[in-house]
Design a protein around this nucleic acid. Structure first.
Lengths: 199, 199
DNA sequence: GTCTATATGCCGATAGAC
DNA sequence: GTCTATCGGCATATAGAC
């Protein structure tokens, strides 16, 4: 790998971390450069603008979580139940979001803060990831594991929304992403209320 | 009401709307003032600083949704089931968030972007609202509607998190907050998967 | 109460030396 | 590749006229 390419990646790593921690507008190019012991102007050798940096960070963030979910599903035996498949996907998503990727967490936290044009540039990879979840849920419904009348569009938005919201309160000192994923899956797959018996 | 007090409230209304739409750092005092057809400097007659404005907006945002939930629960007959109580609270929360209050939605969107001292100033009202939900869930568990082994702390975080996440995609042209609340309640209270029969 | 004018500072971006 | 120096712009906040 050439030096310029390695430097570019280090800048993106730092940018992802800072954007995640402080939001989009609050992070300056001078701040990113200082964290890399460079001067602000030097960044322009690697990037055209702040928007180019955040566009890369947002796209990488989705690609990382998408690949994590794909890989986790591919590692399952073909005989795995739909319950297991959904649980596995939730575990992979929460691991990426909470333990592995500043890029993914930066995406979740600041997508709503970036300029419209930057949001638009992120839509393609976002839609591909959403489709990954739609496929998981559609297969489960087709196999009879989910009620035919359930609106899968809403379920997908609920699942991803509830997982992403953990970013606001998750504390690694109080538990792992895996444990959290299992609790979330128990609650949302089986329901919170005790069902009246069909006696 | 005196003129100064009315003006102060109008400024807060405008600030809540702009913060909700654009995030904290991206909204300038000049921008808030311009929307009220004033000059930037004039705001300092009503507020000491930008931080004082956002502190008020955040606190009012929680107070509005808290009161909405309290009022909705108080309007129920004492005989209402725990299922109904939880559904009613979810409906009130989503109505406030999605249809009524720029203050509440501003709080959800930008709490993570404001200075630490401002976050701290919002914790008291936030904790009071969280306790409202903890009470609803604890009563349901005590009455046997929720499994004794279920971790209510996680359930509360899931419920509020999944509702607040709707802010990122809810489109009033495609449905009402009430309809959404009913779908969310169906999914999370009863579960998504079809249970194997205890045959 | 709201205005104008301004102090002070950080922002994104560019130009050109090395 | 990274530096220094700088441009023009906008930010929060203040001072004082009206």
């Amino acid at each position: 790998m050439k030096k310029a390419e390695a430097t570019r990646l280090r800048i993106l790593d730092t940018a992802a971390r800072l954007f995640r921690q402080n939001g989009y507008a609050a992070v300056s190019l001078r701040g990113i450069a200082a964290a890399e012991k460079m001067q602000g102007g030097s960044l322009y050798y690697h990037f055209r603008s702040k928007e180019e940096i955040i566009t890369d960070v947002l796209n990488i963030g989705i690609e990382i979580v998408h690949r994590a979910v794909d890989d986790a599903l591919a590692a399952l035996p073909p005989t795995a139940s739909h319950d297991t498949r959904i649980r596995t996907a939730m575990e992979a998503h929460l691991q990426a979001l909470l333990e592995h990727s500043d890029y993914t967490s930066a995406n979740v936290r600041i997508f709503g803060q970036v300029p419209k044009a930057v949001q638009k540039a992120n839509l393609k990879v976002r839609r591909a990831y959403e489709e990954c979840w739609s496929d998981i849920l559609a297969a489960a419904q087709k196999a009879g594991a989910i009620n035919k009348k359930t609106d899968l569009h809403i379920v997908r938005l609920m699942l991803i929304g509830t997982m992403n919201a953990t970013l606001e309160w998750f504390d690694p000192k109080r538990g792992t992403a895996d444990k959290l994923a299992a609790q979330f899956a128990d609650n949302i797959l089986n329901g919170i209320l005790i069902k009246p018996e069909n006696s």
